[in-house]
Design a protein around this nucleic acid. Structure first.
Lengths: 181, 181
DNA sequence: TATTACTTTCAGATAGTTCTGAAAGTTGAT
DNA sequence: ATCAACTTTCAGAACTATCTGAAAGTAATA
């Protein structure tokens, strides 16, 4: 009875484990739409629903993926700050644990997406606006105006995003409540 | 002098056309990070900076892409509502024109992303929360709580997004200003 | 120093996405 | 009904992203 799995891990819980399976699979599929790769999203889903930290081997087995794949995507998740490395004393291998607080997750993802999607866009817009500043009339002027407008819009959006993501959950909630009412 | 291009289209404007080239190329590259395909983003960039509506042939030539590709992506852009079909009387072929208002563009994109990214996520969460409602204790209960929490968070975010994207530009601006100060 | 228990890397394989171009379809004019 | 001018479709080609697995790397222990 003590050879492989922990005593209560397999027998009792068919119920929620089945939902969990579903959640992992679907979350993975959604990852694609979110610009996150499928495996990474699946590992994330697996870890946020894990009752305890898991090691690489366990992740590999649970999702049926290769060691290389598991390793790369775990590192990537750590890079995002969505997963932490946990060392258990007396153990060599590394365990992984996901950030479970929803608001923190949201902020992390929002920041990262801003960095990857908005920052480079802004750079392009600024450059284009700059280069055409001298245009005095005609389509050149129009183009300049448009780049400028886009640039300002993006900058504005970024400010809003920064403000929100530096709020504590409670104050964000309060603020949003006011908006909705 | 009247055979092909409008009189001032080619001679004067090397300057802004070069920036425009840059904008189109970079915007296309960014499209990938945005979950939009490169060609679609390029066509969009081309059209929002076009002084006048363009037809398929012109788009193909300007971007060096095939007819099939141009056609498919133009339709897709129309599907998003980012591009309108324009018919010129006395002409058979279809011209295309992009929505240039930044706020309108933003709303269209926000709605579409919500539809593609949030709606399906919500469906998964609801289902998972529902299926584990009966869990009374242990990891199953934890899982249920987590799905519920995520579900509520997403629902809340959707409400905020709906509220914002039904605002007129001016009131959104005013609202955001208050937030930032 | 050698061994063991892990982690990391990366070349090539696989899977997924996008593009081409030619053929088929449509529409309006004659 | 036929034609010319366009638009749409789609099978296969080209490209891109992701994954595998085995080899190389690392670090603790004896």
């Amino acid at each position: 009875m003590s050879k492989k799995a922990a005593p209560e891990t397999k027998a009792t819980e068919a119920g929620w484990e089945q939902s969990r399976e579903e959640f992992i699979a679907q979350w993975g599929a959604l990852g694609s739409h979110w610009g996150i790769n499928r495996t990474m999203a699946q590992i994330h889903a697996l870890l946020i629903t894990a009752p305890a930290p898991m090691h690489t081997e366990a992740v590999m087995e649970r999702l049926g993926i290769s060691r290389g794949n598991a390793n790369t995507n775990l590192r990537e998740l750590i890079g995002w700050g969505l997963v932490r490395l946990v060392v258990k004393k007396g153990e060599r291998r590394e365990y992984f644990e996901a950030e479970k607080d929803v608001w923190k997750m949201f902020i992390i993802i929002a920041r990262e997406r801003k960095r990857r999607e908005l920052d480079p866009a802004l750079a392009v817009l600024r450059q284009c606006a700059e280069q055409t500043r001298a245009e005095k009339a005609g389509p050149g002027r129009e183009f300049h105006a448009q780049m400028k407008e886009l640039q300002e819009f993006v900058e504005f959006g970024m400010k809003v995003s920064d403000t929100v993501s530096s709020m504590k959950h409670a104050s964000a909630l309060q603020w949003a409540m006011r908006l909705l009412s």
